[in-house]
């Protein structure tokens, strides 16, 4: 497979954003000399590609709290998300960082609750994460393009460019972004640290990446992998044959705050029958 320079730079750029220096073939230590070509990298032939990545979540398939915890832990461990705790073991809200977590129905979809709705739905926990919006306010406001869109719809974050102004946090309507209020490495358990994924520094913003780094190696997102059968789907919503597309076309799904025009790419199945 051939690739032009632009494409190469893009992929190399993304790989280095994620800290995958290793996937860039043998970086040389010479700064530059005439005739020297930049290191070349071939796209992974097993990499997953899509026109528009999207996710479908069906909370009715999560039977226990344990099921949900598995999903959030899978993400947070894969991505070295720090876990700040108070001395009594509760989450330290002051430093908290989260990429995916649970919220009750009324908090996930503010204003959608009503007095008479079934207790079942009212009490149902929903998992929330970055929506990888079509028209993301976080990208619009970022003064350095440290948060930006990939052509496949993913909203990415460049930890090396971010100046930590937190404009994107004020702009995101979904509270999806977290800031490193102090060195996150203090709160990463060395025993579970994923050495293949970079840790972050203090003073930068982070969030779910739709597992861009896993897609490149042909793997679906860690949360989807850890979810119970039929609870989470991930795929190309532009592809009429994809699972996500079939579900969204055939069932009632809702998105968070659609009235804002952000175009979230995370869909929630309401009703919970069996899918495709």
């Amino acid at each position: 497979m051939s690739m032009d320079r632009r494409q190469f730079l893009k992929i190399a750029g993304i790989s280095s954003i994620l800290g995958f220096g290793a996937s860039v073939a043998s970086a040389t230590h010479t700064i530059w000399e005439p005739g020297l070509k930049p290191p070349q990298v071939e796209p992974n032939p097993d990499g997953l590609i899509a026109k528009r990545w999207a996710m479908v979540v069906d909370m009715s398939k999560f039977k226990t709290d344990e099921d949900i915890k598995k999903v959030t832990t899978a993400c947070h461990q894969t991505h070295n998300v720090p876990d700040f705790r108070n001395p009594d073991g509760t989450v330290d809200k002051k430093f908290e960082i989260k990429w995916i977590w649970e919220e009750p129905f009324g908090r996930t979809f503010p204003g959608s609750e009503n007095k008479f709705m079934s207790e079942h739905i009212k009490d149902m926990p929903f998992i929330v994460l970055c929506n990888h919006c079509d028209n993301p306010p976080c990208v619009r406001v970022c003064p350095t393009q440290a948060t930006f869109k990939l052509p496949n719809g993913i909203t990415m974050q460049d930890m090396h460019r971010c100046i930590g102004c937190r404009f994107c946090m004020a702009a995101c309507p979904y509270g999806a972004r977290s800031f490193n209020w102090t060195d996150p490495r203090k709160a990463i358990n060395p025993a579970t640290e994923n050495k293949a994924y970079p840790t972050r520094t203090k003073g930068v913003v982070e969030k779910c990446t739709f597992c861009t780094e896993r897609l490149q190696f042909g793997k679906i997102p860690a949360c989807v992998e850890a979810a119970p059968k039929g609870a989470m789907f991930f795929g190309d919503i532009e592809d009429p044959n994809s699972e996500v597309r079939k579900i969204v076309t055939s069932q009632l799904t809702i998105r968070r705050k659609p009235e804002l025009g952000t175009g979230p790419a995370v869909y929630y199945v309401i009703g919970g029958s069996d899918h495709a």
Binding site: G164, C165, V204
Partner: peptide, 21 residues
Amino acid sequence: DMGQPMRIMNVILHPTPNSVM
């Protein structure tokens, strides 16, 4: 207020007209 004040020049290095900041 900046998390990474040493990178302040990024605002000039990567000018972004769609950002009000």
